[in-house]
Amino acid sequence: MKKEQATQSQKLMVFVLTMSLYGLATLFTELIPKFQIGLVEISVEYFLFIPLVLAMLFDPLSAALGAATGELVFSEIMLGQFGGLGEVEKFITVTIGVYIAGRLVRNPGNRKMVGIAAFTGTAAQLLMGTLVDILKVQFAVEDFEAVAGLPESVFATEGFAFLNDLLFSGFLFCLLPTLFLVPKLYGKIEPLLGMQPRTESTALPSIGGKMVIGCVIGFLCAVAAEFLAESGFELISWEAEWAESTGSIAVGMVAAAAIAVIVLVILKKKAGDTQVQV
């Protein structure tokens, strides 16, 4: 009972650590303009090595969730760049990617495994992101197929972006830094959090069917978030049609809204800035 409690706080430590660091890093990537040479986008986008390293050294799930939360909070919410449903997708893909990488490494001293895990995790995250991105443009632009050149261009740019990201960012900004940092930090950072370094015997069991299923479900959720958006489409366009056909009702709405505004202003003046009594 006590032991479990201790691990709970250790998980919280890993969460806080990953969230702060990855959050800070994504905040800067959001601020630093990207360089674009033709179609090749050179961005320092990929600080993913931070959660990758931490997931390999500490509890993978806490690190994965911490990273996703950090990005959401620091770069999306703090800078107001919150993109609605798209963020759900990013949250889930980052979590899955980092989690997979963290679970793959059973002994952080094994450099080969660290490298493979870093690359796999990054590739998984990027691939899921690309799939969702393609779907997103498809939903956003009506008559996607009808616009000349658009489908091809989307597939071309997204496919290219995937390869570019994987080979460029994935290799340079995920694989190399992870290989550089994991051996340096292994055995040194754990005592600072009051933990034992991960070894073959203390690592979580290797990836099983349950985890794969979990990841697939997670990804489906990400896609579902986008599909949910699509299904709402009909409803809104119906509303728009209704507004177009019944102009008189629209005028009535304006009148009602105007009256509401006037009444509220008067009430506010009367009551001062106090709570509404319901």
Partner: peptide, 8 residues
């Protein structure tokens, strides 16, 4: 890009 792919 869509101009490049023959859009108008």
């Amino acid at each position: 890009v869509s101009l490049f792919f023959g859009g108008n």
